[in-house]
Nucleic acid binder design. Structure first.
Length: 421
RNA sequence: GGAGGAGUACCCAAGUGGUGAAGGGGUCGCACUCGAAAUGCGAUAGGUCGGCAACGGCGCGUGGGUUCAACCCCCACCUCCUCCGCCA
């Protein structure tokens, strides 16, 4: 969430930033509540100071044999007042919190203007869209023909938007995330985490999924738990309510997890194949960075994710998301888009974001800087990469004229075979 | 799931209603020393909220309650430990 002081002191800047997203929340109402809160706080704290003082005196008076009946009656009144004020402050705190939880992050100044993904800015390109001297097939057809992907049975078991991999198809999925984890840990210095796939409401609130996006996720009946939509949630929350040491930063984690998403607003989109499923695998990169360092860390995190596609030799491009396309908690996001022959366009395969202190404020993640002051960390994360979509990209981009699939060089050691046919 | 026990600061730990939450270890500073050890003296609650500041509020697992006053009494919850049951 945003800091109330920032809104109070830099109203114009915040308003301009949010306008980039095309929204204009009522910040004046928020500040009016904040004024009221501070006014009440000053009053109630004065009363508490009085009560503390008299409470300390009370045993002295008693010892001296003074009659404290009247003083006790007075303090009873003071305490009653305190209770009323405390309730009011708490009520206002909750209102402020609720409002702040529903205001998205202010975009970084470098975020391009624009309303939708058509306004995103291409930063760089790797390779050229794959050319075929035959009619290429989509991954769902290749998967069925090679008997490595059984979407019929998946829907029999679980309904629409689920995948069932089979044989070398299942092995390819496993090879992809093993390759990704090995690359990130052995070459890029990330520490591997294998997190729980269910988390508490506090975690979901800490990273910004709740309260605003409850309909996108799966809540587990009769518990306080939710299925994670991304490993970002458990991994970022590892350090919730903690103070990190500046010398250990940036902390760099990578984590494989299954991801579960309701896809409530996606009816009719990407209905074929496994581009948009309720359950998919992903390797996530997460960083905890010092404030002054976080934008450099965003660049290197994006590069670390790109490295996977470079090693797989699959064409992609990187775009900077415009204000209107930016995720709720993010201050700046690069999407990596992979060339997908069945779509005849680039498709998102990774989203790398700097949240600045937006998540850290919600989750209360701080660090002790060299000057001994505690500051909120900047959190970053990005897919490194979405495994299912990487599977699609490999299958489609590496398909041969005879309907077989060549295994990318980097994956052969994980697959044990050089082709699927 | 059942039965017990425990949560106090970096660590150990005392405190069972009343003016500053003991003590020890550790850490930091100073003294002694050529230097170190030992010893002595001093500091040590990390943090957070309001305030330009002085200062004040909060803070003994969390949230409520009782009371003029709660680490202490009451209620609920969380976590950890031990035992039993079940289980990959």
């Amino acid at each position: 969430m945003l800091e109330i002081k920032r809104i109070r002191e830099n109203m114009a800047e915040v308003k301009a930033g949010l306008a980039k997203r095309g929204i204009d929340p009522d910040l004046n109402a928020l500040l009016a509540l904040d004024d009221k809160r501070r006014e009440l706080l000053a009053e109630v704290e004065e009363l508490k100071a009085l009560r503390n003082k008299e409470s300390k005196e009370m045993p002295v008076y008693k010892k001296e044999g003074k009659d404290v009946t009247e003083l006790m009656a007075q303090m009873k009144e003071v305490s009653d007042k305190i209770k009323v004020f405390d309730d009011q402050v708490r009520d206002i705190d909750n209102q402020i919190q609720e409002m702040l939880y529903n205001i998205p992050n202010v975009p970084h100044s470098s975020v391009p203007d624009g309303q939708s993904d058509t306004d995103n800015k291409e930063m760089r390109k790797y390779g050229e869209p794959t050319k075929f001297d035959f009619e290429p097939k989509a991954h769902w057809d290749l998967g069925a023909d090679l008997d490595i992907l059984d979407l019929q049975r998946a829907s029999k078991i679980s309904g629409a938007r689920f995948a069932l991999y089979k044989g070398l198809g299942a092995k390819l999925e496993r090879a992809i995330y093993s390759f990704m984890l090995n690359t990130h840990t052995l070459e890029s210095g990330y520490t591997e985490i294998f997190p729980p796939f269910m988390v508490t409401k506090d975690c979901m609130t800490g990273t910004g999924q709740l309260p605003k996006f409850a309909e996108d996720m799966y809540a587990i009946k009769d518990t306080d738990l939710y299925l994670i939509p991304t490993a970002e949630v458990p991994v970022t929350n590892m350090h919730r309510e903690e103070i990190l040491e500046a010398a250990t930063m940036p902390l760099k984690y990578c984590a494989y997890s299954a991801c579960f998403r309701g896809e409530a607003g996606s009816a009719g989109r990407d209905t074929r194949g496994l581009i948009r499923n309720h359950q998919f695998n992903k390797v996530e990169l997460v960083k905890f960075a010092k404030q002054e360092d976080s934008y450099d860390q965003l660049e290197s995190l994006t590069n670390d994710a790109e490295k996977i596609l470079q090693k797989l030799a699959i064409p992609y491009r990187v775009v900077a998301l415009c204000g209107g396309d930016l995720g709720f908690s993010s201050a700046k996001t690069y999407d990596i888009e992979v060339w997908m022959p069945s779509y005849n366009r680039y498709v998102e395969i990774s989203s790398c974001s700097n949240f600045e202190d937006y998540q850290a404020r919600r989750a209360n993640i701080r660090y002790r800087d060299e000057d001994k002051k505690t500051r909120f960390v900047h959190t970053l994360n990005g897919s490194g990469l979405a495994v299912g979509r990487t599977w699609c990209a490999i299958v489609e981009n590496y398909q041969q004229a005879d309907g077989s699939i060549k295994i990318p060089e980097a994956l052969v050691q994980f697959m044990g075979v050089t082709e699927i046919k």
